[in-house]
Write a protein that binds this DNA or RNA. Sequence first.
DNA 1: AGTAGCACCTGATTGC
DNA 2: TGCAATCAGGTGCTAC
Length: 308
Amino acid sequence: MPELPEVETVRAGLEPLVSGTSIDAVTIYRASCVRHHGGGAGEFGLAVADAGIGEVVRRGKYLWFLLEEGHESPVNALSAHLGMSGQFRSFEGSPPAPHAHCRARFALTTPQGPLTLDFLDQRTFGYLRVESLVPTADGAPGGHGSEVPAVPRSVAHIARDALDPAVDQAGAVTAMRKGTRPIKTVLLDQTVVSGIGNIYADEALWLARIHPLRRASSLTSSEATRVLDSVRGVMGRALAQGGTSFDALYVNVNGESGYFSRDLAAYGRAGEPCVRCGDLLTRDRVAGRSTHWCPRCQTGPKPGTDRD
DNA sequence: AGTAGCACCTGATTGC
DNA sequence: TGCAATCAGGTGCTAC
């Protein structure tokens, strides 16, 4: 379940490998991996063929490769979403037979020779597509890893992520406190603040001592700020670990392996003692997602009342 | 407009 | 032992 830190680790590893290369061809092993690309697998192949790869960019969990096609500035991107289980793996020289979960294989040309880039995705929620770029509303770079003030069309509605230096902090706090939804649901909404998935949402709320069922509109500005700071804290620490535990060849390892080895304070610990107060952590479903929290030190809606 | 809920999909785990 | 039901989860879409 790659969230922002995992996707950033993938981006940072891909960038030096593929930037400056060009795409010779792509083989699609499962057509559904390009289901969001208009025109299907055949058209997708035509759209990437002979394109040069520029910067590798990320906003939240969305990743894209800027395509250089002889224009002054890029007009298209090859965008990728890892879904729940997407991975990229690369091979220099002659590649092995594609893995059973390989959905697409790109043949690249580099100054050092041929390079193969595989897109693997066991649960098939991930996807690839080629689409046009649209300018960012604020004129700032579209995402991490790029100076280009544009994003793929399908990313335009996604908010800047929690670690984006161009994020509008006051605007994010305001957006968080709108509406009637629980704070857990709001954190998972990528149009409010992006990059947060189910695991880091629980971790951030535990750190901020806010109950996941608290109505987001009931948070004070300072509480909402504390939640955002906690999101940055847990993601920043995870990113630091991901960045040190993987080297440049990380794309050859299982992208999930580093994820679950991290020490989590809340997620997956139902029935275990809270490391802060000792009470047993509890679990329930919120917005259809498994949600973990400490009933003692995460203040929230009181049972039997509507005060939240 | 804002929100809720489901479809999508595979493999691991649990229950009978 | 074998098979079926359940669970996991991010996004995109539809319906209210």
